[in-house]
Design a protein around this nucleic acid. Structure first.
Length: 689
DNA sequence: ATAGGGTTAG
């Protein structure tokens, strides 16, 4: 036979071990056995219920039982009851407002509220996003209760009201309320996340002045927040200094220094710290994976994504987004599809960042339709989604559709940002929409108050140059409120090459030689400009200049995904195991293509900067090798998707038109700038690239 | 009962 004391002990035991359901079951047994629950029973059972509650009825039932038992007068019981209502309110399945109101009723009826009552109630409002409700309660509180103030401040920070948080922080100081590490860390991160670096540094100075005797825990958490603050304001050395001088570091410290270096683009340092870490969390992996993906280390990112799983971590949606971004960069369509399928199984596919990265992945792998499908089926979208989808259309030459999407975005009252306009301008550029480009370029400032940056000017100049408006482009450069940098001159030089404007082209090249003497692109463009005019002596001069200055041309490199394996070909490749078969096959193809009227562009062969030797035949271009390999290996009718690190060569572009007709297949080539879809002898870029 | 470390778009 049990007595009520042993029931209480069992309930408390299960509850302590976080087994809420078991505790509740014992509670039911106890009541069926006719035992009267007392205040100790209810405090245990309420903390058990808080672990599993997801339904308003459960709250009401226990509330009712408590009222009947008359235990509401002991503060521990109503406090725990408030806490259950609050927990239930933050469950996604219920409407929180009535639950918070019920909690508030319990709170109001308490004759003597204690610190816990106030804090729990205020946290309840914050959790259910009722910041005004929380604030009213805080303002009506006579006690100087720092925990409640901290909860309020962090509530403001998490909901983006960082200025309110800072105001409250000052007020707290003026009212002489004790401030602790919770206060400081919240305020520092508010500053770090909202570009309020001056405020952040003031807070730092204030802490240094005001602190009496910092405990170990105080220093640890405050320094963790400070490391992030200094990274965000670009003071890498100061962040590192704080980290180095910390007497104790925990996982948060290491993650802070890791993500600091990642977001500063210092991948080498990030990798170093990642390797050094003794303990890692899911977040650690997510940070390094997305960092590697973003800065062009796709293979490494994928490797770590797999390793993360082997280490027993379940990747969160952000980690998946990083892996998907890697697939986008690598053009690993099948792998990307597999990740997508896994996400659907895991139920993560409604995540915003996953959806956004999928749009980009499908687009950068050449299948715009699938990108569009993701975009259309996402349950929530934000400006990133719109930008990603517009970019997808723009890269594939669907300029008009991209602009139509932009107009729809405006109709739906989504505010365009700087990236939106970058995308809009490149959509115009890829599709030759000069008039539209001019209009949007002006409207970004006039209608949306966004000052065009150098990158916007560069796109605009690119657009003007492509359509032959070199004078207007030059005027635009002169009208810029800042000194033109490399991107501007590059756009101008590229345009001059297309339209054979020698004077302007040389002018641009000279500026580029000053600004970025080691950049191989300048030499290539200038040499192409000379070649276009038949000035072979000058072509040779540029080559010599390049050699003298020790500038190396980045070798052309193309790759193709066949059966989930990436096959890489370099220009004039001799490394790929099957490359000799590929050369033979390509020769046959060229013979057949000549019958259809293909004439190899020999000018290109002689003066192309990509080939080391003038005699080298055109067929050694890496994109030709990769496409030929694809035709050999992929099943009949399958689309050939090839990726190239540089821009596609003119002769290859011509050759692929014939090839697509000859073998009756679609050939999709992604080069450094955009996509080319070859189908039935035509290219989607309309020779405008 | 409150905090400190993150992501996707060009």
């Amino acid at each position: 036979m049990r007595d009520s004391v042993s029931y209480n002990a069992m309930i408390a035991g299960y509850s302590h071990n976080r087994d809420g359901n078991a505790a509740i079951q014992v509670f039911r047994d106890m009541r069926q056995g006719g035992f009267r629950p007392d205040e100790f029973t209810f405090t245990s059972v309420l903390s058990a219920l808080a672990l599993v509650v997801d339904d308003e009825k459960q709250c009401q039932q226990i509330h009712c039982a408590i009222v009947k038992s008359g235990t509401l007068l002991a503060n521990a019981v109503p406090n725990a009851l408030i806490s259950v209502y609050v927990k239930c309110a933050s469950s996604p399945l219920v409407s929180s407002s009535s639950l918070v109101a019920a909690a508030r009723k319990v709170f109001d009826e308490m004759p003597k509220k204690d610190e816990l009552s106030w804090t729990t109630m205020i946290t309840g409002y914050v959790r259910s996003e009722d910041l005004d409700g929380a604030r009213q309660l805080l303002d009506g509180m006579d006690e100087k209760l720092e925990v409640a103030w901290n909860a309020m401040i962090s509530g403001y920070v998490h909901h983006g009201f960082c200025h309110e948080a800072l105001k409250l922080f000052k007020e707290m100081h003026l009212m002489g309320i004790r401030q602790d590490e919770f206060t400081y860390t919240s305020v520092i991160s508010a500053c770090a996340n909202n570009d309020l670096f001056q405020h952040g540094k003031q807070v730092h100075a204030y802490i240094l002045r005001s602190e009496t005797k910092p405990t170990e825990d105080f220093s640890l958490s405050v320094n963790n927040a400070l490391v992030t603050l200094y990274f965000r304001c670009g003071k890498l050395d100061e962040a590192r200094y704080i980290f180095n001088n910390m007497s104790v570091r925990d996982l948060v410290s290491w993650n802070a220094i890791l993500s600091g270096y990642v977001s500063a683009g210092r991948i080498q340092e990030a990798k170093f710290f990642f390797e050094e870490m003794q303990e890692r969390s899911g977040l650690t992996w997510t940070v390094i994976i997305s960092g590697l993906a973003q800065y062009g280390f796709g293979e490494e990112a994928m490797k770590l994504f797999n390793q993360m799983r082997l280490d027993g971590f379940k990747p969160c949606d952000y980690a998946f987004a990083g892996a998907i971004t890697s697939c986008a960069a690598l053009g690993a369509l099948e792998h990307g599809r597999q990740l997508h399928a896994q996400l659907i199984c895991l139920g993560h596919d409604s995540s915003l960042s996953v959806g956004n990265s999928l749009i980009t992945m499908y687009a950068r792998c050449g299948v715009v339709d699938d990108a569009d499908c993701v975009f259309l089926t996402m349950p929530y979208i934000d400006s990133v989604s719109w930008n990603a989808m517009m970019a997808a259309l723009a890269q594939h030459g669907y300029g008009v559709q991209a602009l139509r999407l932009f107009e729809r975005m405006l109709e739906e009252d989504i505010l365009p940002d700087r990236i939106t306009f970058l995308t809009v301008l490149s959509a115009c550029s890829h599709a030759g929409l000069v008039k539209e480009g001019r209009h949007y370029f002006h409207s970004m400032h006039d209608s949306y108050g966004i000052t065009p940056g150098e990158d916007h000017y560069a796109r605009m100049i690119d657009l003007l140059c492509r359509s032959g408006e070199l004078t207007e482009a030059n005027d635009l450069i002169k009208s810029m409120p800042f000194e033109p940098g490399a991107p501007i001159w590059e756009a101008l030089l590229a345009g001059c090459r297309t339209h054979r404007n020698m004077d302007l082209g040389i002018q641009a090249a000279e500026r580029l030689f000053e600004l970025v003497p080691q950049h191989d692109g300048t030499y290539v463009l200038l040499s192409n400009l000379y070649a276009a005019l038949g000035r072979w002596d000058d072509v040779a001069k540029v080559r010599n200049l390049m050699r003298e200055r020790g500038v190396k041309k980045e070798p052309g490199c193309s790759w193709i995904d066949v059966e989930n394996m990436v096959h890489v070909f370099l220009v004039g490749d001799t490394v790929h195991p099957e490359v000799h078969k590929v050369y033979k096959y390509l020769e046959q193809l060229v013979l057949e293509m000549k019958k259809l009227g293909y004439v190899p562009d020999t000018k290109f062969a002689l003066h192309d900067m990509e080939s080391e030797h003038k005699e080298t035949s055109l067929s050694t271009h890496s994109e030709k090798l990769a496409v030929a390999f694809g035709i050999m290996k992929l099943p009949p009718g399958a689309t050939i998707r090839v990726f190239k690190n540089l821009r596609i060569c003119g002769d290859c572009h011509n050759a692929f038109k014939f090839m697509s007709r000859l073998v009756g297949r679609e050939i999709v080539v992604r080069d450094a700038k955009r996509f080319h879809h070859f189908r039935n002898g035509e290219c989607s870029c309309g020779n405008y690239w």
